[in-house]
Amino acid sequence: MPLTKQDVAGIAEYARIALSDAELDEMTDYMNDAIELLDPLLEYDLDGVEPTFHPIGELVNVTRDDVVTAGLSLDEALANASNVRDRAFRVPAILSGGDES
């Protein structure tokens, strides 16, 4: 069943991508076309086939020692942020005005 515009609007809300009504139409078409391109995957019988999540052969247990390394200075850390205050990154209200919880 193809994705509806409402489905796509829900995904856009989750993915924090604001889309206009026209963009939603376009995106819905694109996604349905793209999903059709994936059909060959559905034709496989993949019973008993292990997934390969990491194309790194037998490489396992990669770790580092618990040793402190130099990080960023405060200025470096905040340098690319648009909105900072009191050594911190600043964001607008998380809940909108009437939303009390």
């Binding site: 618990d66 040793v67 402190v68 390394t69 990080g71 960023l72 850390a77 905040l78 050594r87």
Partner: peptide, 27 residues
């Protein structure tokens, strides 16, 4: 009680000033 964070070499903070122990990984 560890020295560093889970995925980077930043010192684990106790009572440090905000954003004193950060690096490209944990930011």
């Amino acid at each position: 009680t560890l020295e560093t964070k889970m995925f980077c070499g930043c010192r684990i903070s106790h009572d440090d000033e905000p954003n004193a122990n950060v690096c490209p990984v944990c930011l």
